[in-house]
Computed example of a mutant assay.
Amino acid sequence: MKNIQEILLLYFVAGTQDCRHLGDNPADNLLSVLKQALEGGITCFQFRDKGKFSLENSPDEQRALAIKCRDLCRQYDVPFIVDDNVDLALEIEADGIHVGQGDTPVKTIRAKTNKPLIIGWSINSLDEAKIGEGLSEIDYFGVGPIFSTLSKENPSPALGMEFIQTLRNEGITKPLVAIGGIKLEHVKTLRKYGADGVAVITTITQANNIKAATQALKEDSNTIKP
């Protein structure tokens, strides 16, 4: 397994709801976008298929799509993470799971499997980071939203890029990936402030040239070695 910092460098998050602008078959669209993003050099993919316009109400279809995404990621040796759905992640042997503050507790997830599993945890405050810093079950923090975002229905307040620096100055040492409204022009600053990588949705899904947009993000994330 690659080290977690390498995995977080360019972290792509998406589900069918993020691809509906591309036509009538969001599942095929997601696979097409994911393939181009993998060719462009993403280092991790999180299957986050939730909310209206997703396949949440069609669990069999959603599971079938998750397996196709997982298999595609494996072809490129890129970790495949499932958002929130612990049972699905374990059933299809995902490489990891990402949970929010109100989702399944990380200790519960670790107790469900003896296989190596990357566990990410969303944080939106210094207090949450300090709690998570003391939990050995957590491999990395998803920090955000950095900017306001349209990808979540009820997002938490935007934190701003300096929040990453604040976490590092306050002694937070766990790997951090910044998420929420991040565009190419923010990447170098976030890395300089101490983020191990950036997580993006629309910057890839809505790019005119997905592979080129991904390559540009990767290049900028790679230029700064904290």
Rank of each mutant, 00 (worst) to 15 (best):
E162H: 15
I7W: 07
K174M: 03
A212T: 14
Y140M: 00
G100M: 00
A207H: 10
S32F: 02
H98I: 12
S156L: 08
P26I: 09
F12A: 09
E39D: 15
L9M: 11
K115H: 12
I224Y: 13
Q46S: 09
S58P: 00
D49Y: 10
T223L: 03
D83I: 02
L30F: 10
K35D: 13
P79Y: 10
G23I: 02
Q46A: 11
G197M: 04
S156Q: 15
N3L: 07
T113Q: 12
R191M: 15
S58W: 08
R168T: 06
L217R: 12
L167F: 07
N85R: 06
T203V: 03
N169E: 14
S148C: 05
L190G: 07
Q62V: 00
I97V: 12
E185P: 01
F12K: 11
P26T: 06
L30K: 08
E93T: 08
D95A: 01
R48V: 03
T203Q: 14
V143M: 08
R70M: 01
D87E: 15
E91G: 00
C69E: 10
A199K: 00
V187C: 11
L55M: 02
Q75G: 12
A212F: 10
S32D: 11
M161A: 15
Y11I: 04
G134V: 03
L10T: 15
Q165H: 11
I224A: 06
I42M: 00
G40V: 04
F147Q: 14
G23C: 05
C73A: 08
I118R: 09
E56K: 09
G160A: 13
T205Y: 07
D139T: 00
F147G: 11
V198D: 07
K107I: 03
L126S: 14
V143L: 04
S148V: 12
T205F: 01
K52M: 04
T223P: 02
E39W: 01
G102A: 13
T166W: 09
T203I: 00
T16F: 02
R70F: 01
K107P: 01
I131N: 15
G96L: 01
A213V: 06
T223A: 06
Q165M: 00
R48E: 04
L55I: 04
T202Q: 13
G134R: 11
E128Q: 15
D139A: 02
L126Y: 14
T214I: 02
E39H: 09
V200Q: 05
I7G: 03
E162I: 10
I123G: 08
L8D: 11
G15M: 04
F147W: 15
G40E: 14
T16L: 00
P26G: 02
C44P: 01
I164K: 04
L90G: 13
K35R: 12
Q101K: 15
V82K: 05
K107T: 12
V99C: 02
L126Q: 14
E128M: 04
G160E: 15
E170V: 01
A199L: 00
T202I: 03
A199I: 00
K183G: 11
G100N: 05
L30G: 05
M161P: 14
I182Y: 10
F47V: 07
G180F: 07
V82Q: 10
R110L: 00
V198W: 06
T205Q: 06
Q75H: 09
N57L: 09
L167C: 08
G132N: 09
N29Q: 05
F47R: 00
D71H: 03
I164W: 11
